[in-house]
Amino acid sequence: MRKYLAYYVRNFDYPLFFTYVFLCLFGLVMIYSAGMWVAIVNKDQGPDFYYNKQLLNLCVAGVAFIVGAFFPYKHYSNKKLMVALLGIMLVLLFWVWNFGVGAEQSGSQSWIDLGIMNFQPSEFAKLFIILYFAGAFYRKSLKNSMENLGPNNIIYPILVWLLVIFCVANETDLGAVMIISGIAIAVVAASGIQFKKFMKFFAVLGGFGSALIGLILLVKGEEILTQNRVGRIKAFLNPFEYETGSSYQVINGYIAIGSGGLEGVGLGQSIQKLGYLPEPQTDFIMAIIAEELGILGVIIVLGGLGFIVLRALTIALKTKDPLARMIAAGIGSWIAVQTFINLGGLSGLIPLTGVTLPFISYGGTSILLLSFAMGILVNISMYVKLEKRRSKGESL
């Protein structure tokens, strides 16, 4: 046992771990600052209401990180495990259809109420797609090289992806649909498949996905294209024309960002969180960071997230194991795409989707599954270090 622990201590990825911990703790502080007014006025609770709930979420997430870090990533190629996870995910996604809860004004029904917390199955779907695609293509590569992969070899992953997209889109969680699509493309790109075949895969994926989304819009168009969502599109096209309506949140986000300047107005001193930005502790938390801590605070957050993404991609490039490469690339793309969608909506580059900022925003399901993914990434990083030591003939 001591030998086993010594192996982990020696090969552990400390920079990745400490960056993850720093972002979580930084997010915890900002959740307290951003959510205190909402907790007092809207929830009739103490100012530390969201802080305490997120602290509990982080404790559970810490356990998930440890499990991910010490459970060998090789097991994710096990077909029976992936089938079991697919079954669990489909049960959760179908459960949301009938018993899900969400924001009535947006038409979203994405959460399962567990009493002590709300669980969002679409977050589970993001991690599942990474593990399922990586495992499926890895098993294919054991029989045939990825270069010889044909259409028959990728039909089942595509069908599973379409099923997941259909279930998540049926919840009308469009932000999650975008992230899951980006993850699938990134994992396939990291598989080693030939560029021409990748482009064919991408075309098939895009074609089937577009047809599926079109079908969903035809069947549930009125539920998906709610007044709130149409308003977000209008706000994106011309935000200042609807500043008292659908652009209200975006405009106040701009004011928060502009008020911060270089150094910010000071931690806890935000004006926009005092009822101007609805739920500022979630997807608009970066606006509060910009207002209170200025550009320097934004750079700190983006630097931490950028480091994790680059670390994941570096791990993917260094490893010789295709399974490790695909999982690492998938986790890195997940964080990168989700960060882009969050900040893109905040800055007006894309319409708002309600996607949270990884590790920073308030949310139990998000931090739980991101922490588990970070544990897996650390486990892969240890394997890459082990590969390097073996190639040099060093002791493990």
Score class of each variant (00 low, 15 high):
L163N: 04
A136Y: 14
I180E: 06
L163R: 02
I193L: 13
L114S: 02
I180K: 04
I193H: 01
Q120I: 02
K126S: 03
G182M: 02
S181T: 14
G182I: 03
I88V: 15
V177H: 07
N170I: 00
Q105W: 13
L85K: 00
F201M: 14
W111M: 06
N153R: 09
F128A: 01
T172N: 12
G175L: 06
K80F: 10
S77K: 12
S77P: 05
F195V: 15
S191I: 03
A176I: 00
F133W: 12
V164E: 00
E171S: 10
W111G: 05
A84S: 12
K140F: 13
Q109H: 14
P151H: 08
Y156R: 10
S122F: 02
W97H: 13
K197M: 12
A84V: 12
L85C: 09
Y156P: 00
V83H: 10
G175F: 09
L163S: 14
F133H: 09
S181L: 14
W161P: 01
S145G: 15
G115V: 01
R139I: 01
A190W: 07
F99K: 15
G192F: 07
V96C: 07
N170L: 10
L81D: 01
Y76N: 08
M82Q: 15
Y132T: 05
Q109K: 15
G182R: 07
F128M: 06
L81C: 06
L131F: 10
I129D: 01
V101W: 03
N98A: 08
V160A: 02
I112N: 03
A125Y: 03
N144S: 14
Q194Y: 10
L92C: 14
C167K: 00
N153L: 05
I185D: 00
R139Y: 06
I155T: 11
L162Y: 09
V188H: 05
G182N: 07
I116T: 03
L81M: 14
F99M: 09
L131T: 06
I185K: 03
F133D: 06
G107W: 09
I193K: 07
I183P: 05
K196V: 11
N152C: 05
N170W: 11
E123T: 03
L163P: 01
L174D: 02
I112M: 03
G192Q: 08
I193R: 02
A103C: 00
W97N: 11
I193A: 08
N153S: 14
P121F: 05
K196C: 02
S108G: 13
F133C: 10
L142A: 10
L81Q: 00
V96I: 04
W161H: 12
S145F: 07
